[in-house]
Design a protein around this nucleic acid. Structure first.
Length: 322
RNA sequence: GGGUCGGUGCCCGAGUGGCUAAAGGGGAUGGGCUGUAAACCCAUUGGCGCGAGCCUUCGCUGGUUCGAAUCCAGCCCGGCCCA
């Protein structure tokens, strides 16, 4: 069924060469991506804000080295756990990786569940300044001194449109809006326009979903496995490193809770429970995002499905658009 | 057997005569999200109704009262102490 099995090579050219697989955590997207990449002779780009961190393997459910030696994986293990990482870096690295992979004449299979990265991939990011820690810190200090409401009022003065959109309690967004204004003299709302229209991207988006109960039990099983595989030891090792974990890395699900446990704040049982709960919440917000993405080709995975049958459905989908 | 503290909404927990469908937290659900996003923010959470509102709820049964989750009596269940 796959065009690559077809004797007529011409069809291969019409195959989408940028495929994005998304789904909630533990939905099985990584397994599918691997099989699909093998079948299409593609390379994989991870769309995941935590797999970028080196030595954070178990808790981020990173593909094992064996798989990564079969298929090239991009955007995995690209920064130190002590470093910050954010969407703009993700986008830049991804654009470069796509160019490189296509340069080798291979298709790209992107997989991941970091919704904002997906959004940025499909829509792009506004052309404006990045973050400025000094400004942020100053604004943060001011917020605790004069109150966040005051900052929100200031935002209303300089950028009524943004102030309207941003809730008075939403410190991060208020600060970012003020930061952009300080850096450019222009309101952030003047920049943020590229999400208004439909995405003008050539990604072929495939979404994986299952019955919510089943998704939940898969998450629980995964958390259990992470513990068995030594998540605690992994976190201990990370904490023993010379440089402390960056804010982002330390906030990762599985890590934040385990750090609290190692600090003596929680029993292990409770820690595991917290990880499960936070994983579920994470999935919930992923679903909320996914609902807003247009042009997603959803595959509803049944209990009787296997990686192979899901792969076949994926190939059929790809065929159908040729 | 005696004493004592307690039994509140899915869970924990405050409330100790009317302002109480009942604080707060957790969980769950829905939503938002453009450079920290696995972060962060908002809303809903007894039932019915668009709504004014109606009905049911604070272990059970009965009582006091214009009015009870709140006071009284009996009973059931749990913790602790004494036998």
């Amino acid at each position: 069924m796959s065009p690559f099995l077809s004797p007529k090579g011409a069809k291969v050219m019409k195959q989408p060469n940028k495929i994005l697989i998304m789904g909630v955590t533990a939905s099985g997207k990584s397994a599918l991506a691997f099989e699909l990449a093998k079948t299409l002779n593609a390379e994989i780009i991870s769309v995941d804000s935590m797999k970028v961190y080196k030595r954070m393997d178990i808790g981020t459910a990173k593909a094992p080295l064996e798989k990564r030696s079969v298929i090239p994986y991009h955007l995995v293990d690209v920064v130190e756990p002590s470093e910050a990482f954010s969407v703009d870096q993700f986008l830049a690295l991804t654009e470069k990786a796509v160019t490189d992979i296509h340069g080798r004449g291979k298709p790209v299979v992107a997989v991941g569940g970091t919704a904002m990265y997906i959004k940025a991939l499909l829509h792009g990011l506004f052309q404006g300044p990045g973050s400025d820690e000094t400004i942020r810190q100053t604004l943060k200090n001011r917020a605790s001194e004069v109150g966040l409401v005051k900052l929100h009022e200031e935002l209303t003065q300089i950028d009524p449109a943004a102030a309207e959109r941003i809730h008075p309690n939403d410190e991060k967004r208020i600060i970012r809006a003020l930061e952009v204004f300080e850096l450019t003299g222009k309101p952030i709302s003047a920049f943020q326009t590229q999400w208004d229209a439909a995405p003008n991207s050539d990604w072929f988006v495939i979404g994986l979903r299952r019955d919510k109960q089943i998704e939940n039990s898969r998450m629980n099983a995964r958390v259990k496995r992470m513990i068995e595989d030594g998540l605690k030891e992994e976190v201990e090792n990370l904490l023993a490193e010379d440089k402390p974990l960056s804010k982002q890395a330390a906030a990762a699900i599985g890590y934040a809770e385990m750090i609290a446990h190692l600090n003596g704040d929680m029993e292990l049982d409770e820690t595991v429970e917290r990880i499960k709960i936070n994983t579920r919440r994470f999935a919930k917000s992923q679903r909320t995002w996914f609902k807003t993405f247009p042009n997603v080709h959803w595959i509803d995975i049944k209990e009787t499905d296997t990686v192979q049958t899901v792969l076949q459905q994926t190939l059929d989908l790809l065929d159908s658009v040729r």
